[in-house]
Design a protein around this nucleic acid. Sequence first.
DNA 1: CCAGACGTTGTT
DNA 2: GTCTGG
DNA 3: CCAGACGTTGTT
DNA 4: GTCTGG
Length: 238
Amino acid sequence: MCGRFSISIDAGTYNRFRISKGHAPPMVRYNVAPSQEVPVVRQDADRDNEILMMRWGLVPSWSRDRKSIHPIINARAETLLERPAFRSLVKDRRCLVPATGFFEWRVFNGKRPYYVHMRDNSPFAFAGMYDTWKDDAGGPTLTFTIITTEPNELVKTLHSRMPAILRREDEGRWLDGGVLSSEELSMILSPYPPEYMKAYEVGRLVNNPGNEGMSVIAPVSEDDSRKMQTRLALDGEK
DNA sequence: CCAGACGTTGTT
DNA sequence: GTCTGG
DNA sequence: CCAGACGTTGTT
DNA sequence: GTCTGG
């Protein structure tokens, strides 16, 4: 699935995603967690690509209150058109979530985090959907969810799901208002080719959402990894 | 017709 | 165990 | 996703 | 909003 990711927003982001409207402060984040605000790209009524801040964890517009519905951080690609909560969103509330990498926790042999990113470290976009929720006073909150799909051959070694990463040539079609058939959706949201990606184990710093900075994506040291496995082995003997 | 739900992940 | 907050 | 809290009463 | 269950 996708429950933590990294981003880098700078001047290049605007060219990369053809953004002509809106603003997001330049930022580098290594540990974005659900409920936090990050820059998202959508197409506005004038068909311009607009960047703006949204909160991770979809709260649908029809929610009575923020608590009655668990904010939805992921949506299954396979059933998008069947789910009542998503049908209207997949039609006209699609968005790009710029990212530089994401984390998966491998369950085998202790729950250990791995960082997954592009081989050339280039930025990319998750396929997302968003909505606007209004409180009693009419105050709007923009929220989004990240679509998940089957894992590719690389991520399969870590986890049973992975975020839907858009191929660059599909970003425009995902963003514009055109209706997408079930067949088009399954093509666009199919697993990203693993040959362009890389994954490595990181330290447990990422576990705490309060930790931020480059050290979060530092490879785990051989030493720490060995200690961890020893500890697990000892636990197993008890 | 109205009322009530509407999501994902994991279960080493 | 289960919920909330980040 | 993980970490951390999880309660009541009465209150300078 | 949109779907299911009664």
